[in-house]
Design a binder for these strands. Structure first.
Length: 486
RNA sequence: GGCCCCGUCGUCUAGUGGCCUAGGACUCUGGCUUCUCAAGCCAGCUACGAGGGUUCGAAUCCCUUCGGGGCUGCCA
């Protein structure tokens, strides 16, 4: 009753690089919450200060989000009633607000130079005081002002933090209080008129009617500043966005997840052959749980079950092994058609196949026997390339094995027993080989089939042997056996 | 230093005063199965950071302490 407002969440990355694990987890939660509540997800680019080609970045970000199955209701590409959704295109808006704050006395011009600020901060530190702006320019006398101006100083616009405290209910952490003596006056706008994050983020969240801000916990202590901006904008407290500060996703070594302790770029996971639904499933479990024992969560279930209240407040370590386990499960759950469609790009990329009909058909027949033995799509390449190679390559170790006299004996016997087979099916092949190698030569299975496997696939590890031989076909199979025999 | 956040198996978590001699999943170890590798199945190891309270009873509430992290910018 009290909150009839439609839920509006936002995902607002800054274009500092490719979307990474932490970013995406935030996006996923914001998306899931919007969908859960039948609300809207706004996608906004926070590019207030960077001079860079955002086009390329934005393109990649859009591509990644779409690939993951995350869609947005307002933002780049789709537009919306509260655009533009690039902060670099909203500079006038921020400037106007900053001037309004100035007029109302909520903000003031600050002429302090970087050097002055630094030396005063240093002094504060030495006296064991909290470093931060000391409020020097809150009131400037005329002579100082004239001096500054004659010196050609250009002022920044600084927000005045009144005495008191800021209190708010974080959806994940409960009540959080900051006394203003620990929140110094902060800069809203640089001397050149460009806005700072603190200004832009708050103005946009208000103007875009964001109701729930889901973001990393590193922004928790900047929240009082955002709230101060809301107040200066004249927003009533009941209309402030609600905050949910998500715990970090950290690397295995307990440090912040970075390139050094694990792969962070989502693009990397895509190239490795992780499925988008596996990535989302795994990330959803990092800091959130459905509340029961289920671990396999589809995107649909996520939107049905996700609530901010169930998000954990403590940080999570990224565990590649678990991601891989989930990815393997998702791969096994794929229909052969889906599996094929997702595998082909990898085979094409590595030039295992050129893509003609015969090749694709052979791949499709082979997929069922490898589906349960791979954890990443990229593994279809080493798994299936033996089917398409003109000539097998053996490494030294493997080659030695096959040249042993016992192996040679096995290969000769194997060849003899299947040469005349008129039904080249894996069941008949198996029958024949078991008879000749196990029954007649009296060998143990692993001893018997090992050399044959190497001769046919080039490796002691391969998909099931008899099925592989069937797929390879009689001609190639016999030829490879003959080639392996001296 | 100050402020803020966080603390259950190695990891992700369930747990909101009795259902907990703490459950699930991943990892790891052992076994079964088996043509290799997997998958599958079974079993096992391992946790409430510590110390005080409150209570008949605490992982759950309170205090202290220790540990980890973030912020402390004209970065976001």
């Amino acid at each position: 009753m009290t909150n009839a407002r439609e839920v509006r969440t936002r995902f607002a990355p800054s274009p500092t690089g490719d979307l990474h694990v932490g970013n995406i987890r935030t996006a996923l939660f914001a998306w899931a919450y919007a969908r859960h509540t039948n609300g809207k997800l706004v996608f906004r680019i926070e590019d207030t200060d960077r001079e860079r080609v955002t086009d390329e970045y934005i393109g990649r970000a859009i591509d990644t989000l779409k690939w993951l199955g995350l869609n947005w209701d307002e933002g780049p590409e789709v537009g919306g009633p509260y655009g533009p959704y690039l902060q670099s295109q909203r500079l006038d808006i921020y400037k106007e607000w900053a001037e309004t704050f100035l007029r109302n006395g909520d903000a003031y011009h600050c002429y302090c130079t970087t050097e002055e600020l630094e030396s005063r901060r240093e002094a504060q530190r030495e006296k064991n005081q909290a470093p931060g702006y000391d409020g020097k320019c809150r009131s400037i006398n005329d002579s100082d002002l004239q001096r500054y101006q004659s010196e050609g100083r250009k002022p920044v616009i600084r927000m005045r933090m009144p005495d008191g405290e800021t209190k708010f209910q974080d959806l994940i952490r409960g009540e959080v209080v900051f006394e203003h003596k620990y929140v110094p006056d902060f800069v809203l706008m640089r001397a050149d008129g460009s806005p700072l994050y603190t200004l832009a983020v708050a103005v946009d969240d208000v103007l875009m009617k964001i109701t729930h801000v889901l973001r990393g916990e590193d922004l928790l202590s900047s929240t009082p500043r955002q709230i101060r901006v809301y107040q200066a904008m004249g927003v009533t407290e009941s209309d402030f966005p609600k905050f949910a500060h998500l715990p970090f996703v950290m690397g295995t070594d307990n440090a912040k997840l970075s390139k050094r302790n694990g792969e962070v770029s989502i693009a990397w996971y895509r190239e490795e052959g992780f499925l988008p639904e596996a990535i989302c499933n795994y990330l959803a479990l990092l800091g959130w749980s459905p509340g029961d024992d289920r671990e396999n969560v589809s995107m649909k279930e996520l939107t049905e079950l996700f609530t901010v209240e169930r998000v954990n407040s403590s940080p999570a370590r990224f565990d590649m092994k678990k991601l891989e386990a989930i990815n393997g499960d998702k791969i096994r759950a794929l229909s052969i058609e889906e599996f094929l469609e997702r595998s082909l790009p990898f085979l094409l990329r590595e030039n295992v196949i050129s893509g003609n009909e015969n090749e694709v058909s052979l791949v499709k027949q082979a997929l069922p026997i490898i589906q349960e033995r791979i954890i990443k799509l990229s593994e279809v390449v080493p798994m299936l390339s033996f089917l398409f190679k003109k000539k097998l390559e053996f490494d030294e170790e493997t080659k030695k094995k096959i040249k042993e006299s016992d192996s040679q004996k096995v290969l000769k016997s194997a060849l003899a027993s299947i040469e005349a087979l008129n039904d080249w099916s894996h069941t008949r092949i198996e029958e024949a080989l078991r008879k000749s190698l196990l029954d007649e030569l009296g060998l143990k299975p692993r001893i018997a089939f090992g050399p044959v496997r190497i001769a046919l696939t080039g490796s002691p590890i391969s998909p099931p042997l008899f099925e592989s031989m069937e797929l390879l076909g009689r001609e190639v199979s016999l030829q490879r056996l003959r080639e392996a025999i001296d």
